[in-house]
C-alpha cells in the first residue's frame, strides 16, 4: 500500500541547487518554498500523492513565504511554521518533501 507510483517525478536533486529540505531548517530560518514534491513513501500512512495534496491544501505551495518559528523539545520536532499569513505545525518527516530556498542574510 506504500508503493511508489510509476509516474512519480524523476527529477534529480540537481534542480535544487542552493535549496534545502524544510525538514532540515533551524528556528529563525526564513525563505521561499521552491518545490513541493512528495517522492519518498516509506513509513507514511498515506501514499506520496496524497501527502503532496495535503501539503498543498495547507498552503505549502511553490512561491509561499515561510519562517520557522518554533520546534518541539524532543528531537526538535514537530516544527511550527509561519506560512504566508498563517501558522501551521507539522512534523519534520512530513516536511522532507518541501524544498525551500533560504533568504540571504
Amino acid at each position: 500500500m506504500h508503493d511508489m507510483h510509476p509516474e512519480a517525478r524523476a527529477e534529480t536533486q540537481g534542480d535544487h541547487v542552493g535549496c534545502i529540505r524544510l525538514s532540515t531548517a533551524q528556528p529563525g530560518a526564513r525563505g521561499e518554498i521552491v518545490e513541493v514534491r512528495a517522492d519518498h513513501a516509506d513509513g507514511h500512512g498515506v501514499d506520496v500523492h496524497e501527502l503532496e495534496r495535503r501539503l498543498l491544501e495547507f498552503g505549502f505551495v511553490e512561491g509561499a513565504r515561510f519562517e520557522l518559528l518554533h520546534q518541539g523539545l524532543i528531537f526538535a520536532d514537530p516544527i511550527a511554521i509561519r506560512l504566508d499569513d498563517m501558522r501551521v505545525a507539522l512534523r519534520r518527516r512530513d516536511a522532507e518533501d518541501i524544498w525551500v530556498r533560504l533568504d540571504v542574510r
Binding site: 513509513g43 500512512g45 498515506v46 514537530p78 507539522l90 512534523r91
Partner: peptide
Amino acid sequence: VEPFLMEL
C-alpha cells in the same frame, strides 16, 4: 505513521 499537519 500518518502525516501530522495542523493550523495554529
